[in-house]
Design a binder for these strands. Structure first.
Lengths: 245, 245
DNA sequence: CCCGTCGTTTGATTTGCGTCAAGGACCATA
DNA sequence: TATGGTCCTTGACGCAAATCAAACGACGGG
């Protein structure tokens, strides 16, 4: 399983960062220290509403946020999941076509747009790193398109769990071990929004996977995966797909 | 309808370019002339196979290409449509997670990766423009995720037609007029792959839209749209969605 | 001219998932 | 202990789209 991300490890950070790192003190990124600030959000709080013209660029330090799009009649589709080290925001243009919501308590490291853009202009590394990260997200989005368009409900659930497990492992610098164990950071309804299903179907398929021994549940949220390969097979991924969200 | 793309118009080019422009002779991009070359492909020919490590970065000059992902059992999902001025390729990392196929005869303008990356490092504008374009693609991909996950078959078809119509209008510098007329560049099967449907369903829904007077067909491929607003309403988009692929 | 193939349309039938509905587990507050 | 809330599970039923199947028009070659 190859890793498509640019990871930066440094100092006393426990995690590898894929984004402009808020806590690292390396090379040219140091200069960003001068223009950064932090924001905290409570679980359920809206970070950006799709009507806003987002005026900052930021990366998640702790917690989880989601990007969702909503149709007039209320149908919702999650289109992105922001885990620690991911970034949001669009240097260059004032755009936010979707809602960003904190699903857990959330701390973000933000940069005001204008100075950030100036920084990009004078420091090619930043623009390039951002480009890398955006291309990663694009790859992930395309993987999701395959999931949404062609996978069955069971495969969708298996995919989601395996992705969360792998992201979690990558974040904590663990090799994906034989047996993994993760907390699902989403409610059944949020999973449904992510997968293009209803929450009932999500619940049913999770039960089915449990019954078939692909996963075991302790409580509603904690999943342990006895055999990751088995799970990925259920997910319908060719074994070596480079899907790291 | 706001336009999210970076458009460059210049000289004798009949179209506005969103990508690194192959035929334009403006500012710092001039230097790219020294390292660029052209490639031609016939309709149906494979540009990149997902196993390749793509060794160039390029943009479409004429013709249409598609990005597709395939599951082991043959289920296919199109994840991108490359129209003139779009680019493919990933500076920085050797990656190609999907097939790129020419659906019409195709001419691409290519740059070898290494010199292109050097250029990016010394010329911040290029990295920034590429970032802009990638963010546009990401927005488009997210719009597609909503389509794939939550829209009905009829809405999917209406969305596809309206997107092609609007891209076409943007490409030819026309304002989206009251009545539009476009050639569908895809077969029913390709549309099905794009929309996460079967070709039978695509055919049925096109017939239904025709019967209801939302579109009219001349031949199999040529669509005229008497009322774009009506079509967009059928597509389920809020009237002003900035969906420009 | 017939006779392939390819892209398309249309019909009949099946099925996976959505919808509607009821109830259980858990927690906080009264 | 009762009471309401949130989140989750499970069952019964219906429908939209998939599947299976047949046939049509356009095109090219022998």
């Amino acid at each position: 399983m190859q890793d498509h991300s640019v990871h930066v490890q440094c100092g006393d950070c426990p995690i590898r960062h894929r984004a402009v790192c808020a806590r690292c003190e390396t090379d040219e990124l140091n200069r960003l220290e001068q223009i950064k600030y932090y924001r905290s959000y409570q679980a359920g709080q809206t970070v950006i509403w799709s009507g806003d013209r987002m005026e900052f660029v930021g990366s998640v330090v702790t917690g989880i946020a989601t990007l969702t799009q909503t149709m007039e009649d209320g149908r919702r589709q999650m289109v992105g999941l922001l885990l620690p080290s991911d970034f949001v925001g669009r240097p260059g243009r004032p755009t936010a076509a979707y809602d960003v919501t904190a699903t857990t308590d959330l701390v973000m490291c933000c940069f005001r747009k204008k100075p950030f853009e100036d920084m990009m202009a004078t420091t090619p590394h930043i623009a390039q790193r951002l480009l890398e990260m955006t291309l990663d997200e694009l790859d992930a989005a395309r993987e999701w398109m395959l999931l949404l368009g062609r996978k069955t409900a069971r495969e969708k659930i298996a995919s989601l769990i395996s992705i969360i497990a792998r992201r979690d492992a990558a974040l904590h610098l663990r090799r994906p071990a034989a047996a993994l164990s993760v907390d699902l950071p989403l409610t059944r309804e949020e999973m449904a929004d992510y997968l293009g299903l209803t929450l009932e179907t999500v619940s049913r398929q999770i039960s089915a996977l449990k019954k078939d021994g692909v996963i075991t549940l302790t409580g509603n949220r904690h999943v342990t995966i006895p055999d990751l390969d088995r799970l990925m097979e259920e997910a319908g991924d060719d074994s070596d797909g480079g899907m790291l969200v």
